[in-house]
C-alpha cells in the first residue's frame, strides 16, 4: 500500500479534528462544571460565524480581529443566556436538573437559530478566504485557512489548559466540576463560576465557527453538524472529560476522513453515527473513562 494513502487521510483528519476538539472542549466544560447537556452549543458556533462574517465584510476588520470580535460577542451572549435562563431555573428548582436544562438549551437553540434566520435570511454568507493560498503537505494541497484554523484550535486548547490548571479562576472551575458543595465551603463563588464557564464555552464555540468561516459559510442551520459532532467526541471519550476531548476530536476527524474516502460523500455521518452507537452500547463510560467523571450509565 502506498504510504501516502494512509498519510493523507490522517493529515486531513487531523486538520478537521482540531476544530472538533475545540468544540467538544466547550461542551465538556459546561457538562462537567454545570451539569448542562448543551443542545445549543452549535448555535453559538453559528453566532460566531455570523459575527466574524459581518466584522470581516461590513466593518472591514482584519481576520484576527474579526475572530476576536466573534469570541467576545458570543461570550457576552453566553453570559446573558446563563443569567437569564439557567440562573433563574437554579433559583427555582434543581429537581431533574439535567433533563430540564437539556430542554431549555433546546429552546435556546430554536430561538437563536430562527432569530438569525429572521434577521439575515436563510442564504449562505461566506468569505472566500481569510488568508488566500494553499500549502503542500505530503501529496495534498491544503488551504492556508485550514492550517490557520488548526493552529488557532491548538493555541486555544493550550491556552485553556494553562488557564484551567495554572490560574486561580481556572482551579475554581475545576473545583466546582469535582464537588460543588466542597468548592463552596472553601469560598468559591458558585454563581460567578457558572456564568463564566458558560460564557467561555460559548466563546470557544464561536471561535471555532469564526475560524472555519471560509470553509463552511455562515447559515442559520449550520450549527447542527458541529453540535452532534461535539456530542460524539464527548461520548467517545466520556462526558465531561475535558482533557480527553482533545484526543477524541482528532480521532473523530481521522475516522470521518477514512469513511469519506472509503464510502464516498454523505456516508461519513452514517459511519460515525454507527461508531458512536457502538460506543454507547459497549463502553458507555467512554474510551478514556476516568474516575470521578460522569458517565452515561445510570
Amino acid at each position: 500500500m502506498d504510504p501516502s494513502q494512509i498519510a493523507d487521510p490522517i493529515i486531513t483528519g487531523l486538520l478537521r479534528g482540531g476544530l472538533y476538539a475545540l468544540m467538544a472542549l466547550g461542551l465538556a466544560l459546561v457538562f462537567g462544571v454545570m451539569n448542562i447537556p448543551n443542545f445549543a452549543h452549535g448555535d453559538f458556533y453559528m453566532v460566531g460565524a455570523y459575527l466574524a462574517f459581518f466584522s470581516f465584510t461590513a466593518f472591514g476588520l482584519g481576520p484576527i480581529l474579526s475572530i476576536i470580535v466573534a469570541m467576545f460577542g458570543a461570550f457576552i451572549l453566553g453570559v446573558l443566556v446563563e443569567k437569564g435562563v439557567f440562573y433563574t431555573l437554579r433559583k427555582r428548582s434543581k429537581k431533574n436538573w439535567v433533563m430540564n436544562t437539556f430542554l431549555l438549551t433546546l429552546g435556546i437553540s430554536i430561538v437563536l437559530q430562527n432569530s438569525v434566520k429572521m434577521l439575515f435570511g436563510a442564504n449562505y454568507r461566506g468569505v472566500t478566504a481569510f488568508w488566500p493560498g494553499t500549502m503542500q503537505i505530503g501529496s495534498i494541497n491544503v488551504s492556508i485557512d485550514r492550517i490557520v484554523g488548526f493552529l488557532i484550535a491548538i493555541i486555544a486548547i493550550a491556552g485553556f489548559w494553562v488557564f484551567l490548571s495554572k490560574t486561580k479562576v481556572g482551579r475554581s472551575i475545576r473545583a466546582v466540576s469535582q464537588d460543588e458543595t466542597g468548592s463552596q465551603l472553601v469560598g468559591v463563588n458558585l454563581n460567578w463560576i457558572h456564568t463564566l464557564t458558560f460564557g467561555l464555552s460559548c466563546a470557544v464555540a464561536a471561535l471555532a465557527g469564526a475560524s472555519l468561516l471560509s470553509i463552511t459559510p455562515a447559515s442559520p442551520g449550520m450549527g447542527l453538524t458541529p453540535l452532534y459532532k461535539s456530542w460524539f467526541v464527548c461520548i467517545l471519550v466520556g462526558m465531561g472529560n475535558v482533557g480527553a476531548s482533545i484526543w477524541g476530536g482528532l480521532l473523530l476527524g481521522i475516522l470521518e476522513t477514512f469513511a469519506y474516502m472509503q464510502f464516498g460523500a454523505g456516508w461519513q455521518d452514517a459511519i460515525s453515527l454507527a461508531v458512536i452507537i457502538l460506543i454507547l452500547l459497549f463502553k458507555p463510560s467512554g474510551l478514556f473513562a476516568k474516575k470521578g467523571v460522569k458517565s452515561a450509565l445510570e
Binding site: P37, V98, M99, F102, Y228, W231, I235, G266, W267, D269, A270, L273, A274, I276, I277, L280, L281, P284, A296, L297, E298
Partner: peptide, 23 residues
C-alpha cells in the same frame, strides 16, 4: 439497547439513531 443508559444518554441515543436513519 438503551437499557443501561441513564435518561439523558438514552435520549441522545434515540437522537443518533434518528440522525442515522435520516442519513
Amino acid at each position: 439497547l438503551t437499557l443501561r443508559l441513564s435518561g439523558i444518554f438514552a435520549s441522545c441515543m434515540t437522537w443518533f439513531v434518528a440522525l442515522a436513519l435520516m442519513a
